[in-house]
Amino acid sequence: MIKNKMNIFLRKFTSKIITGNKPTFRACSSDVPQFDMENPFEKEKQECLLCKYNIEVDYKNVKLLSQFQSPYTGRIYGKHITGLCTKQQEIVEKEIVKAQSAGLMATYLKEPCYLKDPRLFDVEKPIRPHRF
């Protein structure tokens, strides 16, 4: 910030010395905005739910895993619906398969005890369109 202000001041100062207050052609005028500043309109960095709260996904945590499962078919929702980053989605899918294989989690349905859990995402509004 201070450096920027100093730069502008220096430019104005030197332009006066060089031109002697006479309008002459110069490659760089003092009106040129400074583009070396960082983008003030840059959006805040978005993080997925699991990364944001730093949640460890484990195959024994069936209550968490079942939130990524469809109550109608028991299948795992895709990352365009869950809104997870690629890595987290991969981990969640692996852990769900492990839990189902170990007999902790249902495969063709979501277990009725988890049906009233709060929803982490809206299935009807995927962040990217469905492929069908």
Partner: peptide, 23 residues
């Protein structure tokens, strides 16, 4: 024993969230 599974214990791994780039 009705069913048994042996898994390796997961170690915490650190990685950057890439969601911002993916959007």
């Amino acid at each position: 024993i009705i069913r048994r599974r042996i898994y390796k214990k997961k170690e915490a791994e650190t990685f950057e969230c890439t969601l911002h780039d993916e959007l």
